[in-house]
Design a protein around this nucleic acid. Sequence first.
DNA 1: CCTACCGATCGGTAGG
DNA 2: CCTACCGATCGGTAGG
Lengths: 188, 188
Amino acid sequence: MTTAISKKQNIINTAADLFQEKGYNATSMRDLAAKVGLEPSSIYSHIRSKEDLLSEICMSCAERFTLGMQDIFDQDTSARKKVKELIQLHLDIAFDIPASVTVFNDEWRFLQEPVLTSFLEARKDYEKKFKKILTEGKKAGKFDFQNIDIVFNIIIKMLSWSHTAIKKYNRDELEGELNSLVIKILNK
Amino acid sequence: MTTAISKKQNIINTAADLFQEKGYNATSMRDLAAKVGLEPSSIYSHIRSKEDLLSEICMSCAERFTLGMQDIFDQDTSARKKVKELIQLHLDIAFDIPASVTVFNDEWRFLQEPVLTSFLEARKDYEKKFKKILTEGKKAGKFDFQNIDIVFNIIIKMLSWSHTAIKKYNRDELEGELNSLVIKILNK
DNA sequence: CCTACCGATCGGTAGG
DNA sequence: CCTACCGATCGGTAGG
């Protein structure tokens, strides 16, 4: 049983590598089979479909963001501290599962229903909480910005970019720069 | 002759719409044919291959950025003015050819050689000039930042995000916010 | 987990 | 610009 689970997980992880490298649509199940050392048909003893692989990758990644956000959101700390922890969350996930988070960012639009709807709901919830933290900081007189939607989107883009930057920089340098740049955006 | 050119351009523009909507790999030549009102094989009287369509879209977009950057780079004005004009350049292109610029951003990695190399060279040149402008501003004491590579990438990500934001905001609002946020990042 | 195989769809060509 | 068609490849199944 342990072997079965870890074999399945190995297939999913390898799929994440391939989806990141070639994109979901340009990756064939034959590519994947070759890379895990199985005949193409044998893959289907472990997973149901190519579609399921993408769902698994995107939703497990979404769950990490959802749980991480919930933790931070519920803390009894300042908005600035929460933003700092959100940056840490993004970097934790990026350093832990770099391929998955890239697939999560770039290939989610190929998800099929009903998974697509769950995915978008999780995203929406993440966005709502993030914006509440920003608004909290503004009300406390700590943050200043005009259009919260634009500011949110730009910060999210900065954080998503950092997912791809982890090969070029070390963790501390990247975290320091991101903290400084995000704070610059949120200050007066 | 005019008809031939505009028919070809119509096919390219429709391809850009489809590549944006479904992604390059998930778009079939049959999808494209149906949307332009031709039989699949008739497409090939106007273009050589699916690959050529992507090249055409990406390279014509790259050219707009290259020419626009050259103009701005050569100006005898302050770095701050140049950055302001770069933001305008991105928005001009985004409002003019929204589908193409999205394909340019998201699908360029499916370009084949030798076009891929040209594309990457154009990008690299754009990056070099952009960084020189940032450095110029820093030397003049107008900009302040630590890591130029990180700052460049984050500004580029902000500008690329704006390409997708043109449906939600009007031009002036978006330009104003971008100016203000980019300047915040570059100020002390 | 493999051999053998399926129907569907792909990008593209021949020939008119 | 169309009809007719090609070889290649796709995701996936049957059966053991």
